[in-house]
Design a protein around this nucleic acid. Structure first.
Length: 927
RNA sequence: GGGCGGCUAGCUCAGCUGGUUAGAGCACUUGCUUGACAUGCAAGAGGUCACUGGUUCGAGUCCAGUGUCGCCCACCA
């Protein structure tokens, strides 16, 4: 039967298509898209998909994707998120777990409005000009476009998500979860409405949380202003009696309701209890004492504006001071600021300073280093301001979150973030969840004319005021929406159907790993934890894995405005998704930021290319006796030589290292183990040794087949191990490699390899021989032997390794380019023959010379002086140095006494080897 | 004002619970179209592990402190 006929028959018999050959060139763009389509067609991503091979008796493994903001396209940070999450998911899937990787998108209310406002501005529109309804229509239109871009990017990355479970924080499921969550919190006394000092962004026209207020250092001005005391006799300000206060915000004068001094400050003791007149508004305010006043700052007297400063607010509450709001939504002066009404805050400031100066009450103006809060989104200076808003009481929620991490129920990786977590949750303040925006979930609270509050999760709203029974028709719903992070905070369970007791919730919750950037630990992770524990009675995830941020090649944080952001699609088009995933994972030390640049991508692409070509070689080296459609089989254990045993042992070592890396969440260790195992060991040595075996005519056909099956086995193992990192190239190779009956059609659902165990004897013997090969190559290079020249060699080996060296003869010949090769007992030729190159490595030695040829009697290869002394002297120096070190250590009784036995034994063995090596080298150089 | 992190080869970074000679990629030098791969192969050069002190038989690794860069938290007018 011809091979073609056999292949055709095999294909027919098994009903399978013939294995394709790997194309010669590795071009990721040519196969990546097709492979993703095959995965989708086979329905292998979903835990309950038709192609799933999960073992239902194993625990489920769930990752809910941190939903990217729907405001635009994905950047490299998202790509990194996805790469890491997909690695965990693919690994768990191959281990047979039912895995759910649930994709999603976040409506990002404030960020989305910020982007859309800019967009409609180019069309000559504003939020106000459109009105709430048309604005929201416009928003949906906008996000329906961005959504497609983002989902395309996700597919390109190779994310093995369950698309039929795709969720959005503005979908009906999320809306319901938000309503129910809020009602629960309200009924449990954990959500309340009150007037409080909040952070107001005049640009976004909304309040923002403390986290969204970025403290920004700035050089401002500290103005010293004179307030006139009231003369008790006349009730009028005294021209001469004054008290000077310092302020960085003169416009806030308009809202002053007191002047405060320290109770023990002798400078002002006479003023306490009297009144001072606030300029412009001509209001008389008391001079009060409060220990919060810093006597050393400014003049030691401070003007108090309770409605516009957090310190003043607290002080005002303590002293029962009136709170006068002087700024409107746009941060212009309102009606309370008589004479300045309508002026922008900074214009008002300028005018007030001028006017104070004109009155002669401006004492000083000095530059002042200070910190102002700016809006995370718009960068506007935040104004503290009194507003009636909804808050979530965080203290009890935070305590539960702390208990979960302290007990180890939930673990944070890397562990050092525990401290940050503890500190933040211990000092947490109540969470302002009201936003005066339109794009988001409207707060389900209704108010009746008497001011009663009714909260309900019923989408139709309440029937009546739950306090006084007024009918629904008289109630008005809150206009404010929720902070976008409120819906995100429900994400791990709202996506699984909560508040309903769905199958998904029961099966996949709590989730396994929450992987995200450390920059949103508080914004998001802490809130999911707090809300999850309260609403579902379970911590929403077992492990929090915090990744670093992606920076550009110069270490600058990537952003679109800086113009240094990279579109993952561009990267993938150029280098392939695999290369990008490898680079992102390889550089992602847990919790640390990484710089990302071209060279790292090249490393990834080259690595994929290496594996591709190694696979091509192995597949092409199939011995004649093995049919092309043969099922994959383990190599015959009775026909394994040292080379095969070494390859299998090193492959097992790679499996172990990869398993360890994943278990410990040290993903760069995973890629490092794969890179070294595949490239530096398997390709550089394993394949090269195997070539010698495959070409060795003295071996039986069965032995050569065992060699080949060993290579196939390693390739098979490597593509399985590498699949979670580089899913495409490994799947492509899988299609071309032999499989057995237990293997599925697609690698994505193949089983995870198990270590076949290490072979210490083989590793040791081959290791010694490889050292010798390196030594010979080195000597040849230094002696300027032509690379192609064959030298005759005698290898001297101690008794216990001599047979191993002999068995590896063909390997040594091929790799060191020596022939003929003779193996002799150590000590047979202690002194090198004249003109021969001497090589001493570890316990092995070699002597190299020109093979005798018909025409030339000379066998000299070394430099004119016979042995090349210089090199041997240098080696001897090194060895003697190490020997001296080893002896010094062994001479120290405290070392012998206190170091553990295996360390001492190791030192003794090393001393013996070094001594022998030194003796041999000394003999060679004639010392 | 607290807290955390980085500081290791020219560049970018590994180095887990302390154990002989500190690694990789890129860049560099020399030489190779060796029938898997020039997206490659071989050989090589390059580091007082920021500094000071301590613990230890032994410190890049642990402790204390210093410097420097960066990040997080924090209501001083």
């Amino acid at each position: 039967m011809t091979s073609e006929a056999r292949e055709a028959k095999g294909a027919t018999a098994k009903g399978a298509t013939a294995r394709p050959e790997l194309p010669k060139a590795y071009v990721p763009a040519e196969f990546e898209a097709g492979i993703y389509e095959r995965w989708l067609a086979a329905d292998v991503f979903a835990p309950d998909g038709a192609g799933s091979r999960a073992d239902p008796s194993l625990p489920t493994f769930t990752i809910i994707q941190p939903p990217p903001n729907i405001t635009g396209s994905l950047h490299l940070g998202h790509a990194q998120r996805t790469a890491v999450e997909d690695l965990y998911i693919r690994h768990a899937r191959m281990r047979g777990h039912r895995t759910l990787f649930l994709p999603g998108l976040d409506h990002a209310s404030i960020a989305a409005q910020y982007v859309l406002d800019k967009l409609i501005a180019t069309e000559g529109e504003t939020r106000e000009s459109l009105g709430r309804e048309r604005y929201l229509e416009r928003m949906w239109q906008f996000i329906n476009a961005t959504r497609e871009v983002m989902l395309t990017q996700q597919r390109g990355l190779g994310a093995s998500v369950d698309w039929k479970r795709l969720r959005f924080t503005m979908d009906e499921g999320s809306a319901k979860a938000v309503r129910v969550a809020f009602e629960r919190l309200y009924r449990d006394g954990l959500a309340y409405r009150t007037e409080a000092l909040i952070n107001w962004c005049p640009g976004c026209r909304t309040s923002v949380s403390d986290l969204e207020t970025i403290p920004t250092p700035e050089t401002g001005t500290l103005w010293t202003v004179r307030y006139h005391l009231i003369d008790p006799a006349t009730g009028q300000p005294s021209p001469s009696e004054t008290i000077s206060v310092a302020t960085t915000r003169p416009e806030a004068i308009l809202g002053d309701t007191a002047v405060a001094v320290h109770p023990d400050d002798p400078r002002y003791s006479g003023f306490v209890g009297r009144s001072a007149r606030v300029p412009f508004v001509e209001r008389d305010v008391p001079i009060v004492t409060d220990a919060a006043v810093d006597r050393a700052f400014g003049t030691g007297a401070v003007k108090i504006t309770p409605a516009h400063d957090p310190d003043d607010y607290e002080l005002g509450k303590r002293h029962g001071l009136p709170m006068i709001t002087v700024l409107d939504d746009a941060a212009a002066i309102n009606d309370a600021g008589d004479g300045y009404t309508g002026l922008d805050r900074y214009e008002a400031r300028r005018r007030i300073v001028e006017d104070l100066d004109a009155r002669g009450d401006l004492v000083a103006a000095t530059p002042h280093e200070m910190v102002v809060g700016r809006c995370q989104r718009s960068n506007d200076v935040i104004e503290p301001r009194l507003k009636t808003q909804w808050f979530v009481r965080t203290r009890p929620l935070a305590e539960a979150a702390l208990a979960a991490t302290r007990s180890g129920e939930t673990r944070i990786v890397p562990a050092r973030f525990d401290k940050v977590w503890e500190h933040w949750l211990t000092n947490i303040r109540d969470w302002n969840v009201s936003r005066q925006l339109w794009w988001g979930h409207r707060i389900p609270a209704w108010y009746c004319p008497d001011g009663h509050i009714t909260v309900t999760s019923d989408p139709a709203g309440p029937d009546a005021c739950e306090v006084c029974g007024r009918p629904a028709s008289e109630l008005v719903q809150e206009l404010d929406i929720f902070d976008t992070w409120f819906s995100s905070g429900l994400w791990p369970f709202s996506t699984l159907g909560w508040p309903d007791a769905t199958d998904d919730l029961r099966t996949y919750y709590p989730t396994s790993i929450m992987e995200t950037g450390h920059d949103i630990l508080f914004f998001w992770v802490a809130r999911m934890m707090m809300l999850g524990l309260h609403l579902t009675d379970a911590p929403p995830f077992h492990t929090v894995v915090l990744s670093g941020l992606i920076r550009d090649e110069r270490g600058v944080r990537m952003s679109k405005t800086r113009g240094n952001s990279i579109d993952p699609l561009d990267v993938m088009a150029e280098s392939g998704a695999d290369a990008m995933r490898f680079a992102l994972i390889h550089g992602g030390t847990p919790g640390l930021d990484q710089r990302f640049g071209h060279q790292k991508l090249e490393t990834g692409r080259n690595f994929a290319n290496k594996l591709w070509n190694a696979s091509r070689f192995v597949l092409g080296a199939r011995p004649a006796g093995v049919p092309s459609d043969a099922e994959r089989q383990a190599p015959d254990p009775d026909r394994l030589g040292l080379v095969e045993r070494w390859i299998r042992s090193r492959t097992a070592a790679t499996i172990e290292a990869v398993d360890r890396g994943i278990a410990e969440h040290l993903l760069p260790e995973v890629t490092r183990a794969l890179y070294d195992g595949i490239w530096s060991e398997f390709c550089d040595w394993g394949l090269e040794m195997a070539k010698a075996r495959l070409a060795d005519a003295s071996l039986s056909a069965a032995e050569r087949e065992a060699t080949w099956w060993t290579l196939v086995e390693s390739i098979d193992t490597f593509i399985r191990l590498l699949h979670p990192v580089m899913p495409y190239v490994t799947e492509a190779i899988w299609a071309a490699t032999p499989h057995d009956g237990a293997d599925p059609e697609l690698l994505v659902v193949a089983s995870w390899p198990a270590s076949t165990g290490r072979d210490a004897a083989a590793e040791e013997a081959v290791g010694e021989v490889l050292d010798l090969v390196r030594g010979i190559r080195n000597a040849r290079a230094e002696a300027n032997i032509e690379p192609g020249a064959w030298l005759a060699a005698t290898v001297f080996a101690p008794d216990d390794v001599r047979s191993a060296v002999s068995a590896l003869g063909s390997v040594i010949e091929r790799l060191a380019r020596v022939r003929p090769l003779t193996v002799a007992a150590t000590g047979v030729a202690a002194a090198a023959s004249a003109g021969a190159l001497a090589v001493v490595t570890g316990r092995l030695e070699a002597s190299l010379s020109r093979p005798a040829t018909a025409g030339a009697a000379t066998a000299e290869v070394a430099t004119a002086g016979g042995v090349d002394r210089e090199r041997l002297e240098r080696e001897l120096g090194l060895v003697e140095g190490r020997l001296a070190g080893a002896r010094a250590r062994l001479a120290d009784p405290r070392f012998l006494e206190r170091a553990p036995a295996h360390v001492v034994d190791g030192a003794r063995a090393s001393e013996a080897d070094l001594a022998a090596q030194a003796a041999s080298l000394r003999a060679k150089v004639g010392r």
